[in-house]
Computed example of a mutant assay.
Amino acid sequence: MDALRLATCTYQEFTPDMGTPVRTTAGYPRFPLPYKVAAHAKVITPAWALVQQAKKGLAEDAYEFQYRRQLNDAGLDRIRETLTAIAGSYDLDSPVVLLCFDKLAVPGTWCHRTHFGRWYCEQTGEEVPELGAKPKGTPPTLF
């Protein structure tokens, strides 16, 4: 089997030609989507308590530390199995695109999908490109 292909994007910037859209947020989008979300990757969705702490101003480094602990507790094998099952249920040839709300082109914005991408790359050596708009000066990422 080919390597699992992952990417990230916002709900708002995602288009179906990017891959299989997968929810990674604790909450549902509160706006209509022009596409159907294929699945919810609960194993990498931040815990609701962590989301609430972030809303109250938890610093990014503290958030990332706690989120990485959640990912480590779930374990790489379980995360890969879950995402591979999602890919296999939809389209093995297209990337699984992990979606959330935060637009990274907005200065100072960060989100769990970026933290997940870094963690996953450290664990596997496999890059997780961002498909949405990025801050100015960020080089494009291609598969």
Rank of each mutant, 00 (worst) to 15 (best):
1 M>Y: 05
2 D>T: 15
2 D>E: 10
5 R>F: 03
12 Q>P: 02
14 F>M: 07
21 P>K: 01
23 R>V: 07
23 R>C: 12
25 T>G: 04
25 T>H: 08
31 F>T: 07
31 F>G: 12
31 F>K: 09
36 K>N: 12
36 K>F: 14
37 V>P: 05
37 V>K: 07
41 A>M: 02
44 I>V: 15
44 I>M: 14
46 P>Q: 08
49 A>E: 13
50 L>T: 03
51 V>S: 08
52 Q>R: 14
53 Q>I: 03
62 A>N: 13
62 A>T: 05
63 Y>S: 09
70 Q>K: 05
71 L>R: 06
72 N>F: 02
72 N>I: 03
72 N>T: 10
73 D>W: 01
73 D>Q: 10
73 D>F: 02
74 A>C: 04
75 G>H: 13
78 R>Y: 00
78 R>E: 02
80 R>D: 03
80 R>F: 01
81 E>T: 03
82 T>P: 00
84 T>A: 07
85 A>Y: 00
86 I>W: 15
86 I>N: 13
88 G>F: 05
89 S>W: 02
90 Y>P: 01
91 D>Q: 10
94 S>P: 03
95 P>F: 00
97 V>M: 00
98 L>F: 01
100 C>N: 08
101 F>M: 09
103 K>G: 06
104 L>F: 03
104 L>K: 01
105 A>R: 10
107 P>M: 09
107 P>Q: 09
109 T>S: 15
111 C>R: 07
118 R>P: 07
125 G>T: 15
126 E>K: 04
126 E>M: 08
128 V>W: 02
129 P>Y: 04
130 E>F: 06
131 L>T: 03
132 G>C: 12
133 A>Q: 10
135 P>M: 00
137 G>V: 04
137 G>T: 06
139 P>D: 13
141 T>Q: 15
